[in-house]
Design a protein around this nucleic acid. Structure first.
Lengths: 146, 146
DNA sequence: TATGATTTAATTGTACACGATTTAATTAAA
DNA sequence: TTTAATTAAATCGTGTACAATTAAATCATA
């Protein structure tokens, strides 16, 4: 009978640690571009869909305004993105990629892909984990709050 | 052919998001005790092994002194733990649970277990994820840095 | 036994992350 | 149409998280 109260047997801790490992791994590549790991996630979102509103970006990344606003400001200061307030609805702010972010896309993603490949993760392993994590997330979000 | 550059197809993002969900889920229980999720992880480690050094605790949790020192200070201020500098080697600091942390253990872990159970995670699912995350972590830590 | 290297924590600076509040713009209702 | 409710960002306060530096204690060795 396993002890479920042990730190190393806690799923939450395994996820917490893995997230930390990803952060470190990605940072090791990204720092040479002057990017942090969360900032890279913002770029990923924008490369996929440029010119979204602050709100939409936050929803995509699961980040609130208290996190996103200062982060976007830093990325603006470093010429990765630019903000533009909507003319039709002045409450909305659109986020656009700057040339730098478009130009460097290939270089950055190539470097990142290289590091990930150096981990030798099997495709099957990758996909299984993705699927299981998504299932888990769904359960956590949809749990019945008695 | 899947697009691996998509945010939702990124394993790193799935892990990042899941960690966030765990944080929120656990926080919903822990806030009534005046605990944060990382602080709960510290308690988990100490319930398992009380009176370890600052260094050992950091290794167990994968946290550096820059994170742990202020966190332990806050937990000390809230009567969860106490610090004691070693007599034999004054560089070392031992961390001990306070009565409050020992007394409340059952109540806290019971509440946490309830919330986790409300997510309806299958045992098989749980164990598979644990195992896969550990394998992944190992690969990320041991990758050959060309 | 001095001195240089190592070890352990604390400190500093930057960057998330989140809940709560505030502010401004838009929309809905009386 | 004025007022009330809602929405979108920004701001604030607290708490991680980490790399780099500092400071103090111990150890190694010449």
């Amino acid at each position: 009978m396993e002890d479920f109260m042990t730190l190393k047997n806690q799923l939450c801790f395994a996820v917490y640690e893995t997230a930390g490992e990803f952060n470190k791994l990605y940072s090791s590549v990204l720092q040479s571009f002057g990017l942090t790991y969360p900032q890279y996630l913002v770029l990923l979102a924008l490369w996929e869909d440029d010119g979204v509103t602050h709100k939409e970006l936050g929803e995509k990344l699961n980040l609130g305004t208290g996190t996103l606003t200062p982060m976007i400001s830093r990325m603006e200061a470093n010429d990765w993105v630019r903000k533009e307030r909507s003319k039709e609805d002045e409450r909305k702010v659109y986020i656009y990629l700057q040339e730098k972010a478009i130009e460097e896309k290939r270089t950055i993603t190539k470097k990142v892909a290289e590091v990930i490949q150096s981990c030798q993760i099997e495709l099957e392993e990758y996909e299984q984990l993705m699927q299981q994590l998504n299932t888990l997330q769904k359960k956590m979000r949809e749990r019945k709050t008695n």
